[in-house]
Amino acid sequence: MAHRALVAYERPDGRYDIHASRWGGLDCRLADAISPVDPYAGDAVDPVPRVIARPFGDMLTMADPARHEALYRVSAEYVVDTYLPLWFGLAHYLGESLLGGGPGDRQSDGLVVAVDSPADAEAFREWFQAAKDTVAEAVVGGYLSRADAQAVLADAVSQRGTGREVFAPWSGRETNEY
């Protein structure tokens, strides 16, 4: 709902406090609004943390790719890195349940990719949605299995993500850094 995001603030001990934002996933401009004098960008980030003192990877596994549209990592020096969760779920294209998932459909499958600006985020999102629409059409038309479609998406994201941090927090794949 809305354009939800998670924001991980680094603590002095190197671990992170993870906060939620209702609208921070809109256009990724939240990264520019977070600063030492305004850590929660006005009201953009809930000042009450969801969890405290966790490793960075916990934000990735906490994220729900069907629901969270951006993730932010705020270093102790307030350098803000932005990541896009990319949802590989296809059940909604196939008229299936979005809760249990259909046979072989992993609702929580997907990748997380680093972006370096709001413009980069917008371009990556548009590209990914077009790629997902294309493979979904192929699955709906019976030309591609769902597993193959998701593998195609993963390959495409990895190729387009060359030079970026890419994480696979939900699928059990190895975490890759290209």
């Binding site: 354009h3 609208w23 809109l26 256009d27 069907a66 949802w87 909604h92 949605q129 629409d133």
Partner: peptide, 12 residues
Amino acid sequence: KRRRVGPDAVGQ
């Protein structure tokens, strides 16, 4: 939603 959205918003 505050911007033009695609199928994933329908899934949500």
